[in-house]
Design a binder for these strands. Structure first.
Lengths: 79, 79
DNA sequence: ATGTAGACTGATGTCGACG
DNA sequence: ACGTCGACATCAGTCTACA
């Protein structure tokens, strides 16, 4: 639970790489700042639901699936 | 997409009522402010992922399921 | 028991620049 | 192409109070 940001960052980075996007392209398409993508992926930010939905739509993945992965990662540890 | 907050608020309120909790009890158990729960349920706030997870744990519902419901509501309209 | 208002703190998210 | 820094604006979330 405390490391939720870290896990989410790892998941988002994984899908970004799978899509063959770099941070700049993801930032541009999602209309977010590149430095913010960097912060997110390194677990320095805890995004809002709306931001998550935007990123998921660009990464062409279901928010539900991201949350599912996040849940399992969190449950493994301290939730 | 623009109405994401509204839909999320409706969903959260639905589950809170199903659990027989009032806003004060939910606020206390989730360690959030009562007035914030009120704002959330009326779509005036866009919570972070962490806040969603906290609320879900008190409401004893999977975050994945909330997001799934939210997705379908959003997809119906403008996403 | 809930909605609302206002003032507030801290975190999210922006922007320009550098290594 | 990414991490980082600092300054900044905006919004999440708190608190007191009243209807």
């Amino acid at each position: 639970m405390s490391d939720l940001n870290i896990y989410l960052g790892q998941i988002l980075r994984k899908y970004r790489n799978e899509r063959g996007l770099n941070q700049e392209e993801l930032a541009f398409q999602s209309d977010l700042d590149r430095t913010y993508i960097s912060l997110l992926e390194r677990g320095k930010r805890n995004p809002t639901i709306k931001t998550l939905f935007i990123l998921c739509s660009v990464l062409d993945i279901s928010p539900e699936l991201i949350i599912k992965e996040l849940q399992t990662k969190v449950l493994e540890r301290d939730f």
